[in-house]
Amino acid sequence: MATLFVPTPLRRLTGGASKVEVQGDNIGALLQALDQQYPGVNERLLDGDGNVKRFINIFVNDDEIGSLQGLNTPVSDSDKVSIVPAMAGGAIV
């Protein structure tokens, strides 16, 4: 199973877990499995057409899936998958 790094804003959906083990041959399948394990996650990650939202990046190891095969990017057991949303935290300007 691949290791998925859960960004802080999504951890309330994963019971606080920052890393979860998920099964899936590719990113799309992995996200489906994730959503079954933690219902509601996909709604936060994917838009109505099933694409990754444009303020979220998903990485397999070091590489963004847009530079690979998108949601069809294959995932193997030793891979680390990171979900990186835009964050704005800082000063009120």
Partner: peptide, 17 residues
């Protein structure tokens, strides 16, 4: 990296989180 911003309220702020 982020072609579009998240809709207001979708990403929590430090004041909230």
């Amino acid at each position: 990296l982020y072609p579009d911003p998240p809709p207001p309220g979708e990403v929590p702020s430090c004041a909230e989180g």
